[in-house]
Computed example of a mutant assay.
Amino acid sequence: MTKRDSFTPTRFELTRHSGAFWRVTFDNGPLNLIDAVMNVELHRLIDEIEDDGQVAVVLFDSANHEYFLAHYEAGSDMSPLDALEPSAASPWLHWASLLIRLSKSPAVTITALRGRARGAGSEFALATDIRFASRERAVLGQFEVAVAAIPGGGPSTRLPGIVGRGRAFEILLGGEDFDGELAERYGYVNRAVPDTEFVKFVDAFAARVSRFDVRTLAEIKGFVNAASLPDDVALKAEMRAFIEAVDREPATTLIGKGLKAGWGQPGEFELNLGSQLAKVTGAR
């Protein structure tokens, strides 16, 4: 197979610790917002993993200890997605496709949550194989219900198999934040680790797994995926429902209220988004 030219991402740093162990460190402005450029670069990352064939583990972390991935940037320029295969339905489907590819990647994917991961940030974490959280610093949540929107990146389809039906409803319908300790109790993450031990623990686990035979790891992942991953059709249907929801009332008005109040901007509103967005949009 002919390998693609190497690339230099702008929204994250790619560190190849070894042929088998890669690290992706998100670093995109003060909130680590997801945008179309990051979407394209993550698709390219998965291309590289698939082309390489020797990557056993990819560890995702963040240079910003307040935000792992805050959420998708509302109103961001979609034109960079033109670099990907065109989607007749909507460019938003590239996000759903990315998360499907991430889950099915031959490499074991590990999320190191040290900071906030809400909305699409939470969706990204849920699409990875293993999630570790800093007990004191991690925050996860799906806030979309507060703006009359359906989460688009698969949490309604993935969460029931991860945390159970009732807890999936609680996460999605409550729109509240979950700290590392509660996320561990619910199964939202594998384990919550004290922050003082977090980096050492996650790095050691990722390095340990990366030393095992890459083919064996991929085969184990394949069997687990076959038993546990939701259907691609359902995941893409969820994104289509999101696209429809954000284009109708009351979502358009509520999203505007949230943006005016500080959604997507550094400050107290974003730090406490789970409670603040619901308050501004009238849920409480």
Rank of each mutant, 00 (worst) to 15 (best):
M1N: 10
K3G: 14
R4M: 13
T8W: 04
T10C: 08
R11E: 07
L14Q: 11
T15C: 03
W22C: 05
R23C: 11
T25K: 13
F26H: 11
G29V: 12
P30N: 03
P30I: 07
M38N: 03
V40C: 12
E41G: 02
H43N: 08
R44Q: 15
I46P: 05
D51F: 02
D52H: 07
A56K: 00
F60G: 11
A63V: 07
E66P: 02
E66G: 06
Y67H: 14
A70C: 09
H71V: 11
A74H: 13
G75S: 04
D77A: 01
P80S: 05
P80H: 07
L81Y: 02
L81T: 13
A83I: 11
E85A: 09
E85Q: 09
S87F: 00
W92S: 12
H94L: 11
L99C: 04
S103T: 15
S103F: 05
S103H: 12
A107W: 04
T109H: 05
I110L: 11
T111H: 02
L113H: 02
R114L: 12
R114M: 13
R114P: 09
G115V: 07
A117H: 03
R118W: 07
G119M: 03
G121H: 07
S122P: 00
E123S: 14
S134R: 03
R135T: 11
A138K: 01
E144D: 14
A148V: 04
G153R: 00
G154S: 05
S156I: 12
T157I: 15
P160S: 02
P160N: 03
G164M: 07
R165N: 10
R165S: 12
G166I: 14
G166R: 13
F169N: 12
L172G: 05
E176D: 12
D177L: 01
G180V: 10
A183W: 02
A192W: 01
V199N: 04
A204S: 13
A207E: 14
A207R: 10
V209A: 08
V209C: 06
R211Q: 14
R211E: 14
F212L: 14
F212H: 14
F212V: 09
T216D: 10
L217N: 07
E219S: 11
E219C: 06
G222I: 06
F223I: 14
L229R: 08
A234F: 01
A234Y: 00
L235D: 03
A237R: 13
E238G: 02
R240T: 12
A241N: 10
I243P: 03
E244I: 14
A245G: 09
D247R: 15
G258Q: 05
Q265D: 09
Q265R: 15
L271P: 01
L271N: 08
L273M: 12
L273S: 04
G274T: 08
S275H: 09
A278F: 04
A278D: 09
V280M: 01
R284E: 15
